[in-house]
């Protein structure tokens, strides 16, 4: 997965989102050791302090943990990862519903439409 960073939003916030995505999608599997801050920063072409800040926040959220001497790891708590995944899914759904609303669909209509789309009727 390549890093996709826009310059008009805080970089650390975008790094948090994209690392979360890597964790919930399994591209960074539970218990996996992350590369060093320096390597991750170089890979994303960002400042090491910014990468450090993003990783610290993910640590506070509990998705990552550090071990003093051996580095930083993805949590092994699969439930925790699932929670994060659900949160991300809710964000996508809310955004989608808002868009549908602006097109004039009620939530019930949207759900119907969604079912039809799934069955290939639209």
């Amino acid at each position: 997965m390549a890093w996709d960073l826009k310059s008009d939003r805080p970089i650390y916030a975008q790094l948090i989102e994209q690392i979360q995505l890597r964790i919930v999608s399994g591209s960074y599997p539970p218990g996996e050791k992350l590369p060093s801050v320096r390597d991750m920063a170089a890979d994303a072409s960002v400042n090491p302090n910014t990468m450090q800040r993003a990783l610290m926040e993910l640590e506070n959220e509990g998705l990552l943990y550090s071990q003093r001497t051996s580095g930083r790891f993805v949590t092994e708590d699969v439930e925790k990862i699932m929670e994060a995944k659900n949160r991300l899914a809710m964000d996508v759904i809310e955004e989608f519903l808002e868009k549908m609303e602006s097109l004039g669909y009620s939530t019930a209509q949207t759900v119907d439409l969604l079912k039809q789309a799934k069955e290939g009727k639209v």
Partner: peptide, 10 residues
Amino acid sequence: DDIRETQGKT
């Protein structure tokens, strides 16, 4: 990042 956060621009 403060500039991006408070001003919403690059």
